[in-house]
Simulated assay, not measured.
Amino acid sequence: MVAVIVGACVERGADAAACAPAVFAGARDAFEAAEVFRARWRDAGRGELPAHEGEELTDEDVERVGFEPVMAWQALPQYEMACVAMLNSKDVRLKAAGKQELRAVAARVEEASGETFKCLSYAVAVLDDEPLVALERATGAGFLSRMSGIGDNFQLHTLLADAGEAPSPKAVAQCRDQPGTTPTTGSFNLVGADGEWIWNEGNPSDIPVVDGVRVAVVDPAPYRRSWDAGRFFPGMTGELVLERVLTEAEAGGLLAQVAESVH
């Protein structure tokens, strides 16, 4: 609960960089204790893991598993909320200690329990100052951009759209730093260098790397897809800045290394 209060203070202007290390450390400890909870719960033959609210937990369960592991399991949603509040800050994402350790232990708990901490997983996977090349397969044109603070590929798709049925200026603004969402229809399909679709439900860290840079191939949309354009993390500013148009040789060299869509 203290971590949630700290997160609320950060959302109201407190120094995220100063607060993040302690919040990350507390969250890491909670996830490590949650691993103990899961193992003891399994060893006790208790079956499916309980909800974090813990209404079904009995005094006998607490005695068998241990008070601290139980409290840690119940605290995970609150710690997830507090960590995302810290990770809304680009400075924290780039510099704060403890982020990768937190990511590793949270991933272990997810894998072992089947539990999904999607907001935390996406927040620690956010890329900053990351180069992205978009290649238009039909024309051979290539564009080098730099992206920061983009939470999912719905947001990326909207910011990339500059041809076809382009999103409204309002939708683009809401994917950058303005509140709210706007219904939007996609104008193309994004494909990785491996030929696999870059699903909007994923995030930019899923995009394969070619010659040290993430490459997204722009193909015609196979069908109409619509979504509410906006930010996955409302408190995180999204940026996609065009740096330059690739030369014909550069774009052609990259296109020669990408596969056709496998779908």
Rank of each mutant, 00 (worst) to 15 (best):
F154H: 15
E111Y: 00
D128Y: 11
T139C: 05
S89I: 01
G140Q: 03
R176L: 08
A138L: 10
A166Q: 13
E68W: 12
G151D: 06
K118V: 13
K95H: 15
P167C: 02
P167Q: 06
L156T: 13
Q155P: 12
E130V: 03
C119G: 08
K90H: 13
E60W: 02
K170F: 04
G192C: 06
L144A: 07
L132R: 01
K95D: 14
A134S: 12
E165Y: 04
D152V: 09
A96G: 04
R93A: 08
H157D: 08
G192D: 08
L132G: 05
R103N: 12
V65C: 02
L159T: 11
S89H: 05
A123W: 07
K95A: 15
K170C: 00
P179V: 10
E115G: 14
V172S: 04
K170I: 14
S148K: 09
C119R: 15
R146V: 13
G180F: 09
E101A: 13
F154Y: 15
A123G: 07
N88H: 15
A82M: 06
P169E: 09
R137L: 12
T158Y: 08
A106T: 08
S187V: 03
K170A: 15
T184D: 04
Q74T: 04
D91E: 15
V62I: 10
R146I: 11
R176E: 01
C83E: 09
M147H: 00
E101Q: 10
T182S: 13
E68T: 08
L76H: 01
E60L: 08
N88K: 11
A72F: 01
V84R: 09
T182K: 13
N88I: 07
C83Q: 06
P169K: 13
Y79H: 11
E63K: 11
K170G: 02
L156W: 14
S121W: 03
C83F: 00
E60M: 02
E68K: 13
Y122Q: 14
D91H: 07
A104M: 02
G192I: 09
R103W: 02
G149L: 06
L160A: 08
V70R: 09
